[in-house]
Design a protein around this nucleic acid. Structure first.
Lengths: 141, 141
DNA sequence: ATATTTACTTGCAATTTGCAAGTCAAAGGT
DNA sequence: ACCTTTGACTTGCAAATTGCAAGTAAATAT
């Protein structure tokens, strides 16, 4: 599993030490914008993450305090993953990546969401952070 | 070299297709905040990128239109790398990564720069984008 | 002429990724 | 009770990527 070493004291570098790969931020995207919260749901995303990579990243994110794992109230064999405040703090990163992707790549995105994020990025960030925070407090799905 | 495929049409995903690794954004950081612009200067950064990885990422960034390569006016054996507008558009990503790193990791950063970025992120982003843009128009160093 | 600088390449070993298949406990169906 | 399905992982291995260390080659410098 690994992935612990800090390459330097630069804050950009330390962020990339944890978030700088092709999958980690996609899992967080699914949690924030995809309404997903279980292993099986993450597997279904369009990018088709491999099962071993997903398991690796989930335990990594958990050990790094980005998310918590809890058994589903309706099913003891199911787990629900929720972002911690540390994880919720990555929403601005997701949003800036989204805006750059929209501008420079061939992408498809819900027009309503795009307009919301483009016109008032700061407000949109706060809104989705609030939504995911509230969801974490619900009586569990 | 590789690195071309688009995994999905999600803008977050397409951004990560190009920027989602441990080194690419560090090179851009050096260009924006480090005042660096040559192969040798990138090699000197604290994270100690390997020479083959650096060469790979530079050609990748060049083919993707993120930066341009031009011979130095004073030395024909030296090249100067400059960000394109597409590359300059990644500054908001760098800044959000920086702010997350400052908040959640043990990092060291110039207090003046930090205060500037923390109090008025949008203004700071515009300022550094302008600075790197102006530098690209200078009579070359 | 010789040495040094600058920008890479090349040759592996080690690590990481990506499939495909297998395991295992808990639910659900009959 | 027994069999099937669901959900969450593990395991085995080939392929791709990364990380050293060393080597190449064209310009400059001495």
């Amino acid at each position: 599993m690994k992935e612990a070493k800090q390459r330097s004291t630069c804050p950009v570098s330390t962020s990339l030490d944890l978030l700088g790969d092709k999958w980690t931020l996609l899992i967080i995207r699914d949690l924030v914008f995809g309404g997903k919260s279980t292993y099986g749901e993450f597997l279904q995303s369009a990018e088709k993450i491999a099962t071993n990579i997903l398991a690796d990243r989930l335990t990594l994110l958990e050990t790094q305090g980005m998310l918590t794992k809890v058994v589903a109230p309706d099913k003891k064999s199911k787990f629900i993953y929720r972002l911690t405040e540390k994880g919720i703090d990555t929403v601005p990163i997701l949003v800036t990546l989204l805006l750059w992707g929209v501008k420079h790549g061939p992408t498809v995105i819900d027009p309503g969401l795009l307009k919301e994020i483009q016109t008032e990025p700061a407000a949109a960030i706060e809104k989705y952070q609030r939504l995911v925070r509230e969801k974490a407090l619900l009586p569990l799905e």
